[in-house]
Structure formats: structure tokens, C-alpha cells
Design a protein around this nucleic acid. Sequence first.
DNA 1: GCTAGGTTTTTTGCATTCAAAATACAAAAA
DNA 2: TTTTTGTATTTTGAATGCAAAAAACCTAGC
Lengths: 216, 216
Amino acid sequence: MLRVERQRLHDVVVEHLRGFITEGILPPGKKLNERELCETLGISRTPLREALKVLAVEGLIDISPNRGASVSRMSELEIRETFELISGIEAFAGELACERITGQELSDIKSLHDAMVVSKNQNDLPGYYQRNQAIHDLINKAARNSELRQVYLSLNRRIQALRYLSNHQAPKWDRALRDHEEMIEALEARDGKTLSEILRHHLLDKRDAIMLMVRE
Amino acid sequence: MLRVERQRLHDVVVEHLRGFITEGILPPGKKLNERELCETLGISRTPLREALKVLAVEGLIDISPNRGASVSRMSELEIRETFELISGIEAFAGELACERITGQELSDIKSLHDAMVVSKNQNDLPGYYQRNQAIHDLINKAARNSELRQVYLSLNRRIQALRYLSNHQAPKWDRALRDHEEMIEALEARDGKTLSEILRHHLLDKRDAIMLMVRE
DNA sequence: GCTAGGTTTTTTGCATTCAAAATACAAAAA
DNA sequence: TTTTTGTATTTTGAATGCAAAAAACCTAGC
């Protein structure tokens, strides 16, 4: 039978705050006053503090002793390094995916790709980015390694706010679409090496675009 | 001037418990009674609970609502997947290290390798494993990506207890030593692809050895 | 007007307390 | 004897209270 586990308060709080941070409602550098947050969330300080500890381990906020917490403000170096790491992990996921992906998953990806092209032609930027993200997510899932997946998701959350910003800018369409077409070809050919190369450089391109945005 | 930040209690607790878990003093599956731990550590429940939340995010313990915490007992699948992920990350670190390693670091690794061979000839297993670990750690550092490093260390902590167990067993000397020699050759030749291949398979071999141990 | 020093206020860290859920236990019924 | 049900105890989850550190403020002196 399905066990109904009442969610604990601090878990709910973690999810809320995570959302606020990744969606940019709580911007980088924002000071998190405990009493203030308690009032808006309608809870006491104990569960809030537990939630803050969790978010700190996840790298979404910084806590300095006796000074309190603030939303992490990633330095350019941290952004570079995080993207580099993600590029490596995603490339590895691509290799694994080539060994393990099912026909169903592959055709799901193709459909998403087609939908993405439609979004592009309609100049629907949010739709485009959403489908783009979904494709990468599906490849990651197809790697069939839940530890890898957890790390991937955790790292992505940290740069989510940045992505949010850059999603208002149009990408280099031709390059991006060509990359995706080649990715699908490599997947169909189960060519892990090629796919991982494409993914790696695709990510590093994305990084460069975002680094430009951040600097301005 | 260096700011002396008095460590917070829960940070100290995290370090202590982490040590207890990775050194096997608190074995997998061990139930962690809050009151008991508070008494042995001489603190109240608030900082302890904060520490437990942190360890849960790190994956070292499991917390189930209203049931309390226990040291994570990794399933065979989790072990397989974690090693696979580490193999991918370490392979990537090797590629980066080939681009970025300094002469000094390279010669440090060579010294460690020589010391490791001596340990082996003296049948000094702890010494052998310690140097072995140190070599992998140096390669990882040479990748010059602190985000990668953090993830690497975090994942390694999770399998540390298992490593501890397997360290009482003698490895396949000839294979392990040959691997290490080839690793150093690849590093000297700055041959990233080759190094990453060696590292990946070296890790998967290690995994197989540990999987055998775990099953017994 | 600006700085230095001290005082007040706020905020954080931790202990304690209260409430709710889970577990252990014992007595009664099958 | 085994199962079930009601009660007591333990254990966890969350709120409150208290002390110490940091920040804000205010006054005196230049």
C-alpha cells in the first residue's frame, strides 16, 4: 500500500525557497533575514534554519557565521567552472545514453526537436528554451544513472537563474539547430564519442553566451 | 588580517559525524538516535538536527519523517551507479589535468608512485592505498576546477566506507601498477584521451573488486 | 561636517519546552 | 498460543526563550 507521509515543514520550505531562487524572485546577493522569512512563510525559525542549511549544502545560498544567509552570487570563475563541469557530465551522460537509449526515447527526442523548430519559427523563445532543456533532460535520463542525474539536476539548479536571464536573448539559431541535428544523428548511430563531443562544445558555447550576458 | 571565525557547533558536529561514517565507526544502516548522539557529543538537539540535515543532503545518511535518521546503506545499484559516475568525472578530470598540470605536480605524482611501489614491496597495504588515493587526488586537483573537485570529494565520501573495507584485501598488483605507469606516461605526453580511458577503466575495475566484497 | 566611542537594537546560535507521531508493551479476545 | 486493541513511553517535529555577537544608532569631541 502507498504510505502517506505528511511532508515536513522544512522540506516544504526548501522547495519554496529553491523555487524563489531559481526563478530569480530572490536575486543573487539578496540578504535572507530569518525573522522576515519566518513571517512571510508563517513558520518558526527552527524549520527555516534547517531549510537554510540544506540550501547552503546545495550551493544555492551562502551562510556566514553570525551574519546570516544570502543568495549565492556566483563569481565569473565559479560560473566558468560550473559550466565546464556540467559539460563534462553531460558529455559522459551522452556516451552512456548511446548505449542505453530506447527507440521510444529516441523518437520522443525527435518529436521535441521538431516542436523546438516550430517554436523557433514562431519566434516563441520560452517554448524554444523549454523544449531545448527537455531534450537535454531526456538524454540525461536515457543514461540510466540516477546518481549522475541527481548531480546534473543539482548543478543545473545553481545556474538556473542565469539561464533565466539569457533566455530573453535569441541564440545563434543556425549553430544551435545544427548541433541538435547532429546530436540526434549521433544518438541514432549510437556513436557515443561523437555525441559527447557535440554535447561538450554545445554546453561550452552556451557558457560563452551567458558569460557575455553576466559581464554586462 | 585573517578573520578568526569561531566555528559553529553544527559544523563541528557535521565533521565529527562525517568522520564516524566514512571510517566505519557508524556502520551503514546504524540508527542514529538524536538524544543518544546529543549526550555523547554534549550538545542540544537543535545543532545536531541541523547537522543531520546537512549529512542527508550529502547522501551520507537517510532521514525518514517521524522515524529518524540512519547511516545510508547503499544498494548494489547505487554502488554501481556511483562508481560509474565517479569514473566519468575522474576521466574528465584527467583530460583537463593533461591541459593544465604543472611540472611540479607531475613530479609530485611520480614521487608518490615510487613511494607506492615501495609500500607494495614492503607489503604495507595501508601505505599503498593511501598513496594510491593521493595520486588520484593530485590528478583531480591538477584539473583546476574547484566545482569538479567538490563533487568528486563528495561522491568519494559516500563510498569511503566501502573503500575502507576493501583496503584490507590485496589488489591485483600487476594490473594496478601497470595502470598507474600508463597514467603517468599519458600525463607526461599530455594525452588527455588516453589518460581518461585508463582512469575510467581503472575505476571500473576498482568497482568490480568492491562489488565482489560487498556481495559476500 | 565628520569621526570615535559607547550604547541600544537587531539578529544569530543554541538550549529548552511543548506537541504530535511512532514505538513498545500489556491485557483481552479469538 | 496468537492476534488484536488500548495505553504508556519514547522519539521526532516545531515553537519559544535566552545569551552572545553583529549592526545600527547616537552623542561628544575635533
